[in-house]
C-alpha cells in the first residue's frame, strides 16, 4: 500500500534522506598510513643497504614491502566494504584516482631502465604529490593538499636541479621527505579528524 503525501511532507522526506550517507574520514586514512609506512620503511631500508650494509640487492626491499602493502590494503579494503553498505561519490572518485595512480606508477617503472632510477624516483614523487593533492581537494582536507604541494615542489625542484643530484641516496631522501609530508602526517591528521567527528 502506498502512503499519500503532501508537498510539505515530500520536502521533509527529501531533506531527511538526502546526504544520509557519511564520508568516513577515519577509515579512509588507513590507506595513507599503510602506504606511508610501507614506502618509508622501504626508503630507510634501501638507504641503509646502500650506505651502511652496502649490498647490490638493496632494491629487494621494494617488491617485498610493496607486496606487503598491497596485501594489507586489500584486507583493509575488504573489511571496510563489509561494514559500509553504500558507496559515496567521494569513494567513487577516489577509486578512479588511485586506480589511475597505480596504472601510471607501473608505466613509470616500465620506463625506469631507460630513464634511470633518479628520474624514476622523481616522477614517482610527483605522482605521490598529484594523488594526495587531488584527494585533499576532493576531501577538502588542507593537510593533504599541502602534502601534495610539498611533493610536487620536491619533484619539480628535483627535475630542475637534476644535474646537481650526484648520488642516488639524495633522491631517496627526497622520496622519504615526500612520503612523510604527503602521506604520513596528513594520514594521522585525517584519522584524528575522523575520530573527532565520530565522537
Amino acid at each position: 500500500m502506498e502512503n499519500q503525501i503532501t508537498e510539505q511532507e515530500s520536502l521533509q522526506i527529501i531533506r531527511g534522506m538526502i546526504n544520509r550517507a557519511k564520508i568516513n574520514l577515519s577509515e579512509g586514512s588507513i590507506f595513507y598510513l599503510i602506504w606511508g609506512w610501507a614506502v618509508l620503511l622501504a626508503v630507510v631500508a634501501q638507504y641503509l643497504m646502500l650506505t651502511i650494509f652496502v649490498t647490490e640487492y638493496h632494491w629487494v626491499v621494494w617488491p617485498a614491502l610493496m607486496t606487503l602493502g598491497a596485501v594489507v590494503s586489500i584486507l583493509a579494503g575488504r573489511k571496510q566494504s563489509k561494514k559500509q553498505k553504500y558507496v559515496t561519490f567521494v569513494d567513487h572518485t577516489m577509486g578512479f584516482l588511485w586506480g589511475g595512480f597505480v596504472i601510471f606508477l607501473f608505466a613509470i617503472l616500465l620506463l625506469s631502465s631507460q630513464i634511470g632510477w633518479v628520474n624514476t624516483y622523481l616522477l614517482i614523487i610527483g605522482l605521490y604529490g598529484l594523488g594526495t593533492f587531488v584527494s585533499g581537494g576532493v576531501l577538502r582536507f588542507r593537510p593533504l593538499i599541502i602534502g601534495g604541494v610539498v611533493s610536487l615542489i620536491l619533484a619539480f625542484g628535483g627535475i630542475l636541479a637534476h644535474n646537481s643530484i650526484t648520488d642516488f641516496t639524495q633522491v631517496l631522501l627526497m622520496l622519504g621527505a615526500s612520503i612523510i609530508c604527503s602521506y604520513l602526517i596528513p594520514g594521522y591528521l585525517l584519522r584524528a579528524k575522523g575520530n573527532a567527528h565520530a565522537a
Binding site: N3, I5, S10, I13, I18, R20, K85, Y86
Partner: peptide, 28 residues
C-alpha cells in the same frame, strides 16, 4: 516519485554513488 517510500529511496540514492539493499532497508 510522489509516494513516501519511493521518494525516500530516490532521495537516499540521489546523494550517493550506490547503496546496498540493506542500507535502504535500514534508512527507510
Amino acid at each position: 516519485l510522489h509516494s513516501q517510500l519511493r521518494l525516500q529511496i530516490m532521495s537516499l540514492l540521489a546523494g550517493i554513488s550506490s547503496a546496498e539493499f540493506n542500507f535502504l532497508l535500514e534508512e527507510t
